[in-house]
Write a protein that binds this DNA or RNA. Structure first.
Lengths: 137, 137, 137, 137
DNA sequence: GTGGTCTAGACCACA
DNA sequence: GTGGTCTAGACCACG
């Protein structure tokens, strides 16, 4: 899996890294039980400090996305963190200001939903798509 | 208009303040041409630092939400910042990781759209009623 | 409050620090809302690196013992982390091997309970004691 | 005797292994003079590294739980390590932070004692039943 | 001055 | 070779 980081971005590197991995999981590129590269190798691969990778891994572990396995190293967790009420609340809080801004700029509900649809597809399509009976386009 | 700040939150105060004002505009509580309190009075009202309010106001001005006149003070801009491509791109980038996380936790497109609908209503209702049949002013 | 660390100990410094603070809270020495020293000052006070203190603070925050307040800095949380089932399970898992070892060495239930009683008193006595009607010794 | 290891756990494998064996002894499943599997066979049985088993055995020997003979192999010691003052001190140090945390979370002395009682029974029951009135099998 | 982030180099426990 | 811990020095955002 390819990791893309923007070192100039305002969002911290460890955070971008977390997002990339979470997207990888959502996309089905990273499957439960699969091993992630070691802290050191990933760090040198993408040219950042190993502590930065470490921080990302630790936060992902803490949120339940990955586990540190004594033998296999870092692996994707078999069970993903649940859809708790707390999470939904937090999610709403995070999206709310974005919605408000969009409305100010003239977007309506349909346009926002459309963006969501686009993103969901964009995340789900590349790999995970079940093309058993159904061709892509 | 009431400003609610969470001093424990991870989002910086100036940022929360900006969001609250933008929500106020989206909600129709703050109307174009309307005056905002001065930096000093707002700062003392909500008990935060002058610089913090200043920073929020400056960023809002820079984004086109407000105007700062020497005489008239701070007023809501008549024309809101537009729905530029750049904005939509940035918006997508901000929402993308949230969508990915939601998918990992088992949400589907419908549930996400539902949250958007809820938020859009929540922003529009209190004052500026959806008015399919009912004009506002 | 006095912090005692054993730099030679096997238990990591950040962990000892956490324990000391938790004991301070249990003892009533550190009260909800009270501010803790800044990362830097505490670090220099006890002669360790600021990152070590930072780690301890972050873990305490994550467990719900403290909060990072935008204005007041680091403060003891008003509501302590709850007595969840998960916690009790984890607690049992932690104590179990200690109990087993004690039994091998010839301790019985009463002796173990006695140790618990001693520790509970030891934690609760020094400061928090309600000496409204009752003198200490 | 069945050994259960959690490779995701934070406690090192050798340590878990030691605990399991000590619990086996406390429970009466492993009796003085009884032989333990060889390093090699145990390691391959539970699928871990030779060195790990070795480390566990060596530490157990060092603490006085087992003896390692060139010929007879590994056997449970006839006399268990004693209830030294040093041990009790160490035990208190280990339990103290757990007690403090429990108190913060709202536990009282009785609840803690109850956990101890539960654990003592849990360790003693399966095989070696307290059998004041009731024989196990 | 505060915490947050990033980097770097080093040692150790573990397997 | 792995992750965990500690140290150190530096920059930045925040208030």
């Amino acid at each position: 899996m390819i990791i893309k980081l923007d070192l100039q971005s305002e969002t911290p590197i460890y955070s971008q890294l977390m997002n990339q991995i979470i997207e990888g999981i959502a996309r089905g590129e990273l499957k439960p039980g699969e091993a992630l590269p070691s802290v050191r190798s990933l760090a040198s691969d993408i040219g950042i400090n190993l502590h930065t990778v470490n921080k990302a891994y630790n936060l992902l572990k803490q949120e339940g996305y990955i586990q540190i396995h004594r033998k296999k190293g870092v692996v994707i967790n078999d069970i993903m963190p649940g859809l708790t009420e707390l999470y939904v609340e937090r999610l709403q809080e995070q999206i709310k200001p974005l919605v408000a801004e969009s409305i100010c700029r003239g977007m309506n509900e349909e346009q926002l939903s459309s963006i969501i649809r686009t993103l969901v597809k964009q995340v789900k399509t590349p790999q995970q798509q079940d093309n058993s009976t159904n061709a892509q386009h």
